[in-house]
Design a protein around this nucleic acid. Structure first.
Ligand SMILES: [Mn+2]
Ligand SMILES: [Mn+2]
Ligand SMILES: [Zn+2]
Ligand SMILES: [Zn+2]
Lengths: 154, 154
DNA sequence: ACCATCAATGCAATCGAGTTGCATCTTTTA
DNA sequence: TAAAAGATGCAACTCGATTGCATTGATGGT
């Protein structure tokens, strides 16, 4: 739990996320509900992509109670409005990130094979040019680097 | 269904696959069973990566009957022995390829967003060097190009 | 402030890919 | 050909995710 304590056990990072979440939700056409606020705040506050379960736990830790189906629908809603983005991992579990942490367009991901964490990498970097066979029309590249995160490599 | 007809409605490609499958299975330590033969033949005969369901259908088309659990276990067995390799797609369904079609080591995949087919791409190509943040230790890159296959782009 | 509207929620049931336990059958080896 | 190891079939199960439907609640207009 990083960040300097602010008040009521809420860190400054969380306070930032709170106001930003409210602002982002107001901007998007749709209702501002406790569930949407909490989920977006949690995503904004996290450096790593979070699974449905991890978000559920974070919600509980805030003393809130959101039905798991509602959580699925909130996440779907956020993704549709580009407030979050969804990552398919090899364990067949979706993970979510606040979209602003993920740089606007394409970006790669890093997956730690030890702790399982997934983080967004800045920029598409050396935009690999792939020699595709004749006739294949590329639209986007999905790139995941597997390895060890700083914490696990240390 | 590509390939020149050979006999009994079996194409030459399938005949090739049959002998190659038998040969590969004998080489690997383990029993040569009808299920393993059929599955490996089907994988060898396919240009695209096949889902569990697609393999099941192909087995039925051959007049064979293999339990779905057995199919899962056969696929697992083939992957463990590097006779096949497994691809995680965004629809959370595993797809399989005969390993010899996939070049030995790392290789990228192409996913057609229209027909859903997944094919292995030759070589890792311009092995993109990613500018990872400090401390991240890359081990392998997983690359999928999304776009239109020749058939769907035409 | 109040209400009416309709989007959002909760709950139970359901789906679908994949897994596990165990009894039975087959391949292989001696 | 028989024993032993290994593979298969079946039923039950796990788990992430989805659907249907009745109820609740956020919001805009009064
Ligand atoms: Mn991302
Ligand atoms: Mn491949
Ligand atoms: Zn790690
Ligand atoms: Zn296609």
């Amino acid at each position: 739990m990083p960040g300097i304590e602010c008040c009521n056990g809420v860190t400054m990072a969380e306070a930032d996320a709170q106001s930003r979440a409210r602002q982002l939700l107001s901007a998007a056409a749709g209702r501002v509900t406790p569930a949407r606020l909490a989920v977006l705040e949690i995503l904004l506050d996290s450096a790593t992509a979070l699974s449905h379960h991890e978000i559920e736990d974070a919600i509980e830790r805030r003393g809130l109670d959101v039905d798991r189906v509602t959580l699925y629908r909130v996440l779907e809603w956020l993704v549709e409005r580009d407030l979050a983005h969804r990552i398919a991992a090899e364990d067949r579990v979706w993970r979510f990130n606040a979209a602003d942490r993920a740089h606007a367009g394409e970006h790669a991901h890093f997956h730690c094979t030890q702790c399982g964490q997934i983080v967004c990498l800045d920029g598409p970097d050396s935009a690999a040019t792939f020699a595709l066979p004749e006739g294949y029309q590329p639209e986007r590249a999905e790139i995941t680097i597997h390895g060890r995160c700083p914490r696990c490599a240390g």
